[in-house]
């Protein structure tokens, strides 16, 4: 049986992290949970430890990608076969972890992306929808595959992918989205997607709020161009 680790990057998520961990324990008792506290200064670490999760605590905020990469390195050192990444804000429903595992087995995939757009009635804002459609189109042109939700943080990866992404700067520090999917396709990994359910955030502010979406778009375009041009 595969050893599964669920990685939850968290930055000051004391109000939602407990609920997320408890739900995971209920739906996937066989999986271990790792919370990567990315410089949190609230009780995220204490709550997570209290609920039996492994906790890695960054001295300061490295960003979403930096926290995920810490989790990948942890998974490799502790010999996990499969990693599932989930958000700490309660958007992802752990009941769908099973869907990711099934899709991996069916397609012999290295990466399974949980998409909110294939079956569920998730309502995204107009700008978010336009952005997601745009990046989906770019991915389709480059890979020939339809990925409907490239910004999803609910993903499964196997140890081959982890080994690659754990190395140096292979994993983007800030927003590992469409660029990462294209990079993994370029590296001949099999990427598929499967339907999952996503809720609105339990608490706090999304990392894609305010002026950030515009900066996100610019940085993502640059990252995509680099993926296409880089030879390594």
């Amino acid at each position: 049986m595969s050893k599964i680790l669920i990685i939850i990057p968290a930055f000051n998520e004391e109000k939602s992290i407990g609920t997320v961990i408890e739900k995971i324990h209920r739906t996937s008792p066989e999986a271990d949970v790792l919370v990567v506290s990315d410089g949190s200064c609230d009780n995220t670490v204490e709550i997570s430890k209290g609920l039996g999760a492994h906790v890695i605590n960054h001295a300061f905020n490295l960003g979403y990608g930096g926290a995920l990469q810490s989790g990948f390195r942890f998974a490799l050192k502790k010999h996990y076969d499969i990693v599932i990444t989930m958000d700490a804000d309660g958007q992802h429903d752990p009941a769908y972890i099973e869907n990711l595992l099934t899709a991996r087995a069916q397609h012999n995939a290295n990466v399974v992306i949980g998409t909110r757009f294939l079956e569920s009635d998730y309502k995204a804002g107009i700008f978010k929808r336009v952005g997601i459609s745009l990046f989906s189109a770019i991915i389709h042109i480059y890979t020939g595959k339809r990925i409907t939700d490239p910004t999803s943080g609910f993903q499964l990866m196997d140890s081959a992918v982890l080994t690659y992404l754990s190395h140096g700067d292979n994993f983007p520090l800030d927003y590992p989205d469409a660029n990462m999917i294209m990079l993994l396709h370029k590296k001949k990994f099999i990427v598929v997607e499967t339907p999952v359910k996503m809720f609105d955030r339990l608490d706090g502010v999304s990392m894609h709020s305010g002026i950030k979406p515009l900066i996100y778009m610019i940085r993502m375009f640059l990252a995509i161009i680099m993926v296409v041009l880089r030879r390594d």
Binding site: V36, H54, V55, I56, N57, H58, A59, F60, L62, G66, Q69, S70, R73, F74, K77
Partner: peptide, 10 residues
């Protein structure tokens, strides 16, 4: 360094 330090602390 931050990632390594966090892992060593763990």
């Amino acid at each position: 360094l931050t990632q390594k330090l966090a892992f060593i602390e763990y």
